[in-house]
């Protein structure tokens, strides 16, 4: 067989292999013109290379053509009708969203849930700050948004807040001072009451082991001990006590009370 694809054994067929292959599909489908079909058949009958290709193509065509039409399930039509009847509710929304198609690349990223939550938290924080600093959004005017006005407002807010905090802590210190003074006063009152309400013994038992000498008292309150000493000791004991001016006076007082 020559390289050009011509078959020298077929005088009426001036058809190459490439041409045969190009017409193969139409020949199998039967859409070739009678003249072309005759040339095609002639080439196919005499060419050992093209004949198997024709046979395979016809075989494949016949096998696929032999596949029957499949009957769709009976419920499919009703299912499709049910599904498509729900579609119109979403269709207008889709048309409406087409207006924003140009902005979708930008907003598509921004409208993600994580960004949405971040924006919500930022908005909440700003509103909280404005509420704490006493700024009302409805009271804001264009004039208030000038840099000088914003600066003076911020300075004023700073000093007001600082002053408020300072005043609070000073008030707190004053309260502590008052509370401590009241506590001291209460303690002093309680100690006086306990001294006055302490009863005198009827028959005091001498306890020479526990008698304290004036030189033994090393406590920090010598005056109180002296007072208790005079109150607890009987006149007899006082008489035996070392002579001092105070003791004599007290003993005299006791004698006067007894004579009366």
């Amino acid at each position: 067989m020559p390289d050009q694809g011509h078959n020298p054994n077929l005088p009426n067929a001036a058809m190459t292999h490439a041409e045969f292959e190009g017409l193969l599909c139409e020949a199998v489908d039967g859409t070739l013109s009678p003249a072309d079909q005759e040339r095609f058949n002639a080439h196919g009958a005499g060419c050992d290379l093209c004949a198997p290709a024709l046979a395979f193509a016809q075989q494949g065509h016949r096998l696929v053509r032999g596949l029957p039409e499949v009957e769709p399930p009976a419920y499919l039509l009703q299912k499709i009708l049910n599904v498509t009847s729900e579609v119109p509710a979403r269709a207008p929304r889709q048309q409406e969203s087409r207006r924003w198609t140009g902005l979708r690349p930008f907003f598509g990223v921004v409208l993600q849930p994580r960004f949405g939550m971040s924006f919500a938290m930022a908005f909440f924080s700003v509103m909280l700050m404005l509420n704490v600093t006493g700024v009302k959004v409805t009271d804001l005017r264009y004039v208030d948004l000038r840099p000088a006005a914003v600066k003076s407002s911020m300075v004023r807010s700073y000093y007001e807040t600082t002053g408020r905090a300072q005043k609070y802590y000073e008030n707190l210190r004053f309260v502590y001072q008052v509370q401590s003074a009241l506590r001291d006063l209460r303690n002093a009152t309680n100690s006086d009451d306990t001294q006055q309400e302490q009863p005198q013994p009827q028959q005091p038992q001498p306890k020479p082991q526990q008698q304290r000498q004036p030189g033994d008292n090393t406590s920090e309150q010598p005056q109180q001990n002296n007072q208790r000493y005079s109150a607890e000791r009987s006149p007899m004991q006082l008489a035996a006590a070392p002579a001092s001016n105070n003791v004599h006076q007290i003993s005299f007082c006791a004698d006067d009370r007894r004579t009366a």
């Binding site: 292959e21 190009g22 193969l24 599909c25 139409e26 199998v28 290709a53 395979f56 193509a57 075989q59 494949g60 065509h61 096998l63 696929v64």
Partner: peptide
């Protein structure tokens, strides 16, 4: 298209 149809049929049969 014709080429694909032809190749498809032939390949199926083969």
């Amino acid at each position: 298209v014709k080429s694909r149809i032809n190749r498809g049929r032939t390949e199926l049969a083969r």
